[in-house]
Amino acid sequence: MNINRISYVRKRLAESQLSEFPKYARCLGLDIEVHKDVFWDDNNNGTGRWVAENVPPTAGKRVLELGCGCGLIALFLAKSGASHVLATDLNPNAITNTLANAHRNEITNVTSIQSDLYKSVDQNSRFDHIVFHSPSTRVPENFDFSSMIEYSSFDPGGQLLNRLLQDSGKYLTRTGTLMLAYNVSQNESAITDKLDKLTLSHKLIASKKFTSDSMINLHLYEIWPLPAE
C-alpha cells in the first residue's frame, strides 16, 4: 500500500470540497453545475475534459458511462452525436448532478441511474461502447472510506477493476469496446500486464502526464472484451 499516494489523493479530494456548492463552470461547450460530494478539480476538471476529448467518435452509438460524476463525459458524448448515453455512478449525488446538468443543457438523450458498476444495468442491454474513468488507487479490501467522494478514486483490493474486466463483455455488442481511462502513475505497465494476462486485445489511444512527478499520469485504452467474429 502506497501511503504517500493515498494521502495525496485524499488531500486532492478534500480540497475539491472546500468551495461553496453548487459551483459553476463552462466546459466543453456545456454549462456545468457541480454538487457537493462530486469531484471537480480546480483545473476546470482537466482530467475529465481530457478523457471526453480523447474517446473515439461515438456518433450514432449506444454508450454506457460508468462513474459519471457530474455528467461531463456522458453529456459531451450525447451532445456529440451518440444515439443514447446511460450514465451510472455508485454515488447518488452524482446521479442527481448528472440529471441536473442534462436539464440545464437541454440534452434529452441521456439517462442516469445509481449503480455499482453493472449491478443495476438491465442485463439485456447492449452497448457499442462502455466508458470508465476508473478509480486507480489500490487500497486494502477493508479500506475505511471517509466520504462518498472517495469512492471516485480508491479501489479496495483491485476488485473494481477485476469486476469491470470480467463483466464488460456481457454488456457490449459483438463489435463493442471498453474505453478505460486509468491513472497508471509511475507504473506504466499497471494495466497492460493485467490485460495481457487476461488475453484481452487492447490498444493505447492516448496518454498524458498531468503532474511532473507522474502522480497523475492518465492512459486511455480501447479494449475488446469479446473475441472478434
Rank of each mutant, 00 (worst) to 15 (best):
V121A: 07
T137K: 07
Q123D: 15
Y171C: 00
E141N: 14
I107L: 11
I95G: 02
L161C: 06
R104W: 02
T192C: 06
I191Y: 03
H133Q: 11
L180N: 09
L161W: 05
S146E: 15
R126G: 03
F143N: 00
K119W: 09
L160P: 00
A94H: 05
L180I: 05
V110A: 02
V184M: 02
L164M: 11
M179R: 06
S120F: 14
I130G: 00
G157A: 01
D116L: 00
M148R: 12
Q186T: 13
T137M: 07
V184T: 08
N101P: 00
G176Q: 02
N124F: 12
K170D: 13
L99P: 04
T173K: 10
F143H: 03
I113C: 09
Y118C: 01
I191Q: 02
A181E: 06
L161G: 01
I130H: 04
N109S: 07
F143R: 00
V121S: 03
V139A: 01
E150P: 01
Y171L: 00
S189F: 12
A100G: 01
D122S: 15
N183M: 06
N101Y: 03
P92W: 07
N97Y: 09
N97R: 05
L160F: 09
S115W: 07
S168Y: 05
A181C: 14
F145T: 02
V121I: 14
T137V: 14
N162W: 12
Q159L: 14
A94V: 05
L160N: 02
V184R: 04
T108H: 13
N105D: 00
Q166Y: 11
T96F: 09
L99R: 13
H129E: 14
S125F: 08
K197Y: 12
S136K: 01
T192H: 07
A190D: 05
V121Y: 08
T192V: 11
P156H: 04
S147A: 11
T175Y: 11
V184C: 06
P140V: 08
F127L: 01
N93E: 13
T111H: 05
